[in-house]
């Protein structure tokens, strides 16, 4: 979009699903990294994740980094401390 003349009155979004296009993972400073060996698959991180972007994998849990904002709640709730918050850009 280039011109304001393409905007809708009142910022109404006429086509559903626009939030998918908005990859909120770019907001992240700290990235949750799971140590699969420590993970019990207890689901705590999945239940507490406010974004709903953690799900069970074959082994351990899987995080959708496209939408993870890096809040760290999962790491805080993990009973075995399997999740570490790592500074973004340092792997």
């Amino acid at each position: 979009m280039n011109s304001m003349r393409e905007l809708t009155i009142g910022a109404v979004i006429k086509k559903p699903g626009s939030s998918r296009r908005n990859k909120t993972g770019t907001w992240r400073n700290l990235k949750p990294v799971i140590d699969i060996d420590k993970c019990l698959q207890c689901d705590n991180c999945q239940l507490f994740c406010p974004e709903g972007i953690i799900k069970k994998a074959k082994k351990g849990m899987e995080i959708d980094y496209d939408y993870c904002k890096g809040c760290g709640i999962c790491a805080n709730e993990c009973p075995t401390r399997a999740i570490q918050m790592v500074k973004e850009g340092i792997d």
């Binding site: 304001m4 905007l7 809708t8 009155i9 009142g10 910022a11 109404v12 979004i13 006429k14 086509k15 559903p16 626009s18």
Partner: peptide, 26 residues
């Protein structure tokens, strides 16, 4: 435009710094 389950739309979306000023201008 109105809220209608048959034609889904969003009222009250956010506008980031790139577009907020244009909405106020309108």
């Amino acid at each position: 435009i109105s809220l209608d389950p048959k034609i889904p739309s969003t009222f009250g979306a956010y506008a980031d710094p790139e577009w907020y000023m244009e909405f106020r201008y309108m």
